[in-house]
Write a protein that binds this DNA or RNA. Structure first.
Lengths: 247, 247
DNA sequence: TTCAAGCATTTTGCATTCAAAATTCGAGAT
DNA sequence: ATCTCGAATTTTGAATGCAAAATGCTTGAA
């Protein structure tokens, strides 16, 4: 994909099916599109964010784009260097650890709140997801497993029924998604079964509405997830594999 | 490779500095000033944010001000209504509860991390703060008590030594500061002594580096703080006290 | 009086313009 | 050949301009 192949892209379609007030303003639309553009890895970490090119690509002027850049900087996706424009933020090992810990804290909170608020139906749905995931685990279906796993974590956050939490969680998830921390469980069976056990504990704690336990398990779960990912990262480094800079 | 065709970050600039890039740009300064302006209550909740007036007041044009507005909207301090400008966000009872829960989750995380990372010196400093606060409590010195209390909570977050957490915590604290939830402990002695007991528990858990306990106590502490504030709010409402609408 | 319709004014959203800073490019010196 | 200095070009940050939408104000009718 190349920005230089500039097809002005009919800028303002009429996508009216968006309840959020974002899609109603050009700025909001640009914000989302630009965020996706970065999160999906179209710009290498540390790379300059080419204002002009993106304006042409999105078919807008610099004003709304620059507004979006300010927000993305606040989100932590990019850095703003005075008089030198925006750079895609490079996430180091230290910051990655910190971000995982915050995610752990947010999921711990979500779990605690979920224990207070989740309905029987929602719990049943979560239970079904869990068993489906277990099926994937037994069949060693990594893809299905990941999908279920994601769905479960999202469902817990949803069950917490707390709007600011949901927003903040989404923000941090976006920041992390940019780094391909794909803990490839395929070659780490121990971690995989450990993760599965942790999910069993979660479901159990949630069933008993044991908030503190749930909270602890989720934090631990995220810590271990990071540990596994970091271990894999380390292996990759040993092999001299550089950061995958996607085209 | 990058979409731009630009090579990944000229290696010449290895500078890792990113302390406060805010105060260096006009936009950053405006952002902070405007945030303070709103947080300090110069605009009533629900009021229009007068673009033109603020531009004159800050001596800038609309462009940087509007950029700041976009960020503040993302922060949750204001709402952006399409074609009708910005409004100071009105925080309802429901959202207040949610925000307190998130604060509780963040402090719980901070406490957990502090248990892992705090140094003996930092702990000793915290202990001194605690005893100072106890002194204020005995003397019924509300002001000194509040100051110490704030300092302690800040110190715990600082001890967690996690930059994204610190930022997020500051953000939510700012949102809450806008609502005068001054739990006037003066006429709620029970809550005051309960809070004092909770702080004793905190210090004890921290001394034993008992992360989970610390986490639980802090979450509970914030819940109780909200409960007390809400109770007082209710009393005020009964007396027909309206929101102070400042120009 | 109350209400509403029509017009003028203000405000908003975005594009464009402009000065200053940064980056690039090239000539001349070594 | 490489390095350095400086002018040309690009890019950034912010002000200004402009059309569309919203707001307010006046007038007139029930």
């Amino acid at each position: 994909m190349s920005v230089t192949g500039l097809e002005p892209l009919p800028a303002r379609d009429e996508r009216r099916d968006q309840p959020e007030p974002l899609m109603q303003s050009l700025h909001g639309e640009v914000l989302e599109r630009l965020r996706d553009f970065i999160v999906e890895g179209n710009l290498s970490p540390g790379a300059r964010v080419p204002e002009r090119l993106l304006c042409e690509r999105f078919g807008i002027s610099r004003t709304p784009l620059r507004e979006a850049l300010k927000v993305l900087a606040f989100e932590g996706l990019i850095d703003l260097l005075p008089n030198r424009g925006a750079r895609v933020r490079r996430i180091g090992e230290r910051e990655l650890t910190e971000l995982f810990d915050v995610m752990g804290g947010l999921e711990a909170l979500a779990g605690r709140l979920a224990c207070e608020k989740i309905s029987e139906e929602a719990f049943a749905a979560l239970e079904r997801l869990h068993h489906e995931m277990y099926g994937h685990y037994l069949r060693r279906d990594l893809h299905g497993y990941f999908a279920c796993n994601q769905a479960i974590h999202d469902a817990i956050v949803a069950a917490a029924d707390n709007e600011p939490l949901r927003t903040t969680y989404a923000n941090f998830a976006g920041r992390l998604r940019r780094t391909r921390y794909a803990a490839n469980l395929d070659d780490d069976r121990d971690r995989w079964s450990e993760a599965m056990r942790e999910h069993e504990e979660m479901l159990d704690a949630l069933r008993r509405r044991a908030g503190s336990e749930m909270s602890d398990i989720l934090f631990r779960h995220l810590r271990n997830k990071h540990r596994a990912a970091a271990k894999r990262e380390g292996q990759a480094d040993e092999n001299g594999v550089e950061e995958a800079v996607t085209a």
